[in-house]
Nucleic acid binder design. Structure first.
Lengths: 137, 137
DNA sequence: ATTAGTGCAAAGTATTTGCAAGAAA
DNA sequence: TTTCTTGCAAATACTTTGCACTAAT
């Protein structure tokens, strides 16, 4: 199902602004903050406002197309949401590089922990902070 | 080494306000936000200002006596820092209850992952979000 | 005496919201 | 032509900072 169809099933409208934001968002590989995304979008659609970017990202979150992250800071970072394989993050405290990782064993251990405390798990965050190989030098 | 000595080695002063804040902070079992801590402290020392609480918590963070957390929200939560056993968190998305857990196997797997990517690990966050046993009913 | 800390209010971030005008259905 | 969306500015929530005064060393 494409975005336009998805929006219309929710009684929402497809607009030029939304198209550009989503296009630019999906194009980016790294985790992006609102400000950087706003700059990218502004280049294609100069009259766009900050609020529209915020509102669109909120919409994408709710549609399950984007995930919001807070790597220790107040500021939110966004990434496209992958339904399939969940991944977690290694963050370099020196250069802020972000590397994604997946670990099946950890995922399973999480289920064990949740069960032990009677939780029904919905999501998780696992972030490892340290110094990357380049910054160690 | 007590706090007063610790402060003096850094050329910092021991004050009534800091004493009260630290005393109230250590007394609390749960993760606490600045507002709740401010209220507690105000009961013992009515003229205290918000800024002093913020500044003192920042100081405690830097001294390694407190950790700051952001469980998905903008607002920071603080907990006393335990040098010894690191623990992580299970958070109920319905009632916001926070349960601490430790898992040796996961800690070890983290080291394996860090090594794989050439990271020197400094810290980590591992948060499991879900519905607790009471809220499931 | 000197230096650091306090309380206040003002400023700073990051994000959200009200509203009139504009665009999509 | 109705309803949703936009852009702007103002509002909000949390946190930090400048400054004159006060307290600790």
């Amino acid at each position: 199902m494409d975005l336009k169809t998805l929006l219309s099933t929710k009684g929402l409208k497809s607009t030029k602004q939304r198209d550009v934001i989503i296009q630019e968002f999906l194009k980016l590989k790294e985790h992006v903050n609102i400000d950087a995304l706003y700059q990218k979008v502004k280049a294609k659609h100069p009259t766009i406002g900050y609020a529209t970017v915020y509102r669109t990202m909120k919409l994408l979150k709710e549609c399950g197309m984007a995930s919001e992250r807070h790597f220790g800071t107040r500021q939110a970072l966004y990434e496209p949401h992958h339904e399939t394989a969940h991944h977690d993050h290694l963050i370099c405290v020196k250069c802020n590089k972000i590397i994604e990782f997946e670990n099946e064993k950890i995922e399973k251990l999480q289920d064990v922990i949740a069960k032990k405390y009677g939780f029904r798990l919905e999501s998780h965050k696992h972030e490892l902070y340290g110094t990357c190989s380049q910054c160690k030098k």
